[in-house]
C-alpha cells in the first residue's frame, strides 16, 4: 500500500480508494443494523407484560425475566455508588493536583492496567477476594463490587480527560476573584466538565450492565429476586448466556437479548441527548 507501482494513474487510484473507503464506512453501518436488527426482530415479538414482569418458570424455559432485570439494576447500582466517587475524585486529583512524581506515574500505570485486565480475571479476583476471603458469598454485593472495580478506570479516564480540557482561563478567572483552589474546582471546573464526567459514568454503567465474565463466579445464578445484597442473583447477561449455551429456551434468549440491547441503546441515546442539551445551555448556543 505504501509503494504502489505506477500501473494505475493517481486519478484512478483516487477513484478506487474512494469506493473502498465508502464501502468500509457503509459496512460498519450494515454490520450494526444486521446485529441489532436481528436481535430486535427476533426478540421484540417475545415481549409481553408477563415476559418483562413475570418470574421465570423452571430454569427459564418459559415465564419472564423480572428477577434478572432487578438483579441487573442492583449490581449496577452497587457498582456505580462505589466506582463513581472513586473514579471522579481520582480524576480530579490527577487532573488538578498531581505533578510529575513517581507516585503519579504509578497511579496512571495502575489505572491503565486496571482498564486492560480481562474481565474474567476480575471475575477470578472477585471469587477469591469478595466471595471467599471476605466471606460475602455468591451475592449481589460480591458481583456489584467486582463490577465496580471494572468501572473505575472507565470513569476515571473519561472524567480526567474532560477535567483537563477545561480552559485554564476559567480557573484563572476564578482564582483572580479570590476563590480558593477547591472552590475553583467545584464551582467552575467540575460544572464545566460535567458533560464529560457524565459520559464517563454512563460508560462505566454500560460496562457494568453488559458484563458477564466478571459476575459468572461472583454473583451466583439464582432465579429468584434477590431480597438483600447478600442474596445471589442472575443479571440479564448471565441469564442470556445460560439460556443460550445450555439450550434452555431460544425464544426467551431472544427476548432477553432484546431487553439488554434496548437498555444499552436507551441509556446511550438519552445520555447523548442530555449532555448535548446541558452543553448548549452552558455555552449559550
Amino acid at each position: 500500500m505504501i509503494s504502489m507501482p505506477r500501473i494505475i494513474s493517481p486519478h484512478h487510484a483516487q477513484k478506487i480508494m474512494n469506493v473502498v473507503l465508502w464501502g468500509v464506512g457503509l459496512l460498519a453501518i450494515v454490520i450494526l443494523i444486521i446485529i441489532i436488527g436481528y436481535i430486535l426482530w427476533n426478540g421484540l415479538p417475545q415481549f409481553s407484560l408477563e415476559f418483562i414482569f413475570g418470574n421465570p418458570v423452571g430454569s427459564g424455559e418459559s415465564g419472564g425475566i423480572w428477577p434478572m432485570i432487578v438483579s441487573t439494576f442492583y449490581v449496577t447500582f452497587i457498582a456505580l455508588i462505589v466506582a463513581t466517587p472513586l473514579g471522579v475524585l481520582a480524576a480530579i486529583w490527577l487532573a488538578e493536583y498531581a505533578g510529575e512524581s513517581i507516585l503519579v506515574k504509578a497511579i496512571r500505570f495502575a489505572a491503565e492496567t486496571l482498564a486492560s485486565i480481562p474481565s474474567i480475571v476480575f471475575g477470578l479476583f472477585g471469587l477469591t477476594f469478595f466471595v471467599v476471603f471476605l466471606q460475602m458469598g455468591f451475592s449481589v454485593l460480591s458481583g456489584g463490587l467486582t463490577l465496580a472495580l471494572m468501572a473505575i478506570p472507565t470513569i476515571l479516564r473519561t472524567a480526567e480527560v474532560s477535567i483537563e480540557a477545561v480552559p485554564q482561563s476559567y480557573k484563572e478567572g476564578s482564582l483572580a476573584l479570590g476563590a480558593s483552589k477547591w472552590q475553583t474546582i467545584y464551582r467552575v471546573v467540575i460544572p464545566a466538565a460535567i458533560p464529560g464526567i457524565t459520559t464517563g459514568i454512563i460508560l462505566g454503567m454500560a460496562r457494568a450492565i453488559e458484563e458477564t465474565a466478571a459476575i459468572l463466579y461472583t454473583v451466583g445464578a439464582a432465579l429468584a429476586i434477590p431480597m438483600s445484597i447478600w442474596d445471589p442473583a442472575r443479571p440479564l447477561p448471565l441469564h442470556l448466556y445460560i439460556l443460550a449455551t445450555e439450550g434452555v429456551s431460544l425464544p426467551n434468549a431472544y427476548g432477553t437479548a432484546a431487553v439488554l440491547v434496548l437498555i444499552i441503546l436507551i441509556i446511550t441515546i438519552s445520555t447523548n441527548y442530555l449532555v448535548e442539551k446541558y452543553t448548549k445551555k452552558m455555552m449559550g448556543r
Binding site: 466517587p85 472513586l86 473514579g87 475524585l89 481520582a90 480530579i92 486529583w93 490527577l94 493536583y97 498531581a98 507516585l103 504509578a106 497511579i107 495502575a110 489505572a111 492496567t113 486496571l114 485486565i117 480475571v121 476480575f122 477470578l124 479476583f125 477469591t128 477476594f129 476471603f133 472495580l149 473505575i152 478506570p153 476515571l156 480558593s180 483552589k181 477547591w182
Partner: peptide, 30 residues
C-alpha cells in the same frame, strides 16, 4: 479544608494502585 480535600482526592487516586496490587496479589497467591 483545602488540605483535607486534597488528601481525600489523593486517597481516591491511590485506590487504583491498591486495587491492582490486590488483584495481582490474590490471583498470584491462588
Amino acid at each position: 479544608e483545602e488540605f483535607l480535600v486534597e488528601k481525600v482526592l489523593l486517597l481516591a487516586a491511590i485506590s487504583s494502585i491498591i486495587i491492582i496490587l490486590l488483584i495481582i496479589g490474590f490471583v498470584i497467591q491462588q
